[in-house]
């Protein structure tokens, strides 16, 4: 399978691609959970730059990451989201507990 996760120290970057629906989330969740169980991750960064479509399964994925990171006292950040994705996240009330970073800042780190 294509490598979608990159680990730098205690940070894990997840590069989401294409259409983030229930089918896609099922697959990538396995990969993310595998890595989270194997490495010590304190910061999870979800990159939405290359996402063309997202439905509520994507929100489920963010909530899944949030739950995990909360349990290990870590943090979760979403970057590169289109207006469309932001709108649906706002509708689901996700922004009350997820931080959304400016993409520029994050690109410096990579």
């Amino acid at each position: 399978m294509e490598q979608n996760c990159k680990i730098v120290g205690t940070k894990m970057y997840v590069y989401l691609m294409g259409e983030v629906d229930h089918h896609y989330v099922k697959e990538i969740k396995k990969e993310i959970d595998g890595k989270l169980g194997f490495y010590i991750i304190k910061e999870l960064i979800l990159d939405f730059t290359n996402v063309q479509f997202m439905d509520s399964a994507g929100i489920g994925l963010i909530m899944h990451g949030y739950q995990y990171m909360k349990n290990v006292l870590g943090s979760i950040t979403c970057v590169g989201m289109s207006q469309r994705i932001k709108k649906s996240l706002a509708a689901a009330g996700v922004f009350t507990y997820i931080s959304e970073e400016k993409q520029e800042k994050y690109q410096e780190e990579v």
């Binding site: 439905d55 509520s56 899944h64 739950q67 509708a91 689901a92």
Partner: peptide
């Protein structure tokens, strides 16, 4: 209802009908 899901353990958003409606 928003955020309601019968499969909570699988971390679903429970937003399906809310999105369809809006």
């Amino acid at each position: 209802e928003p955020l309601y899901s019968t499969k909570k353990d699988e971390e679903r958003a429970g937003m399906g009908f809310t999105f369809m409606d809006t």
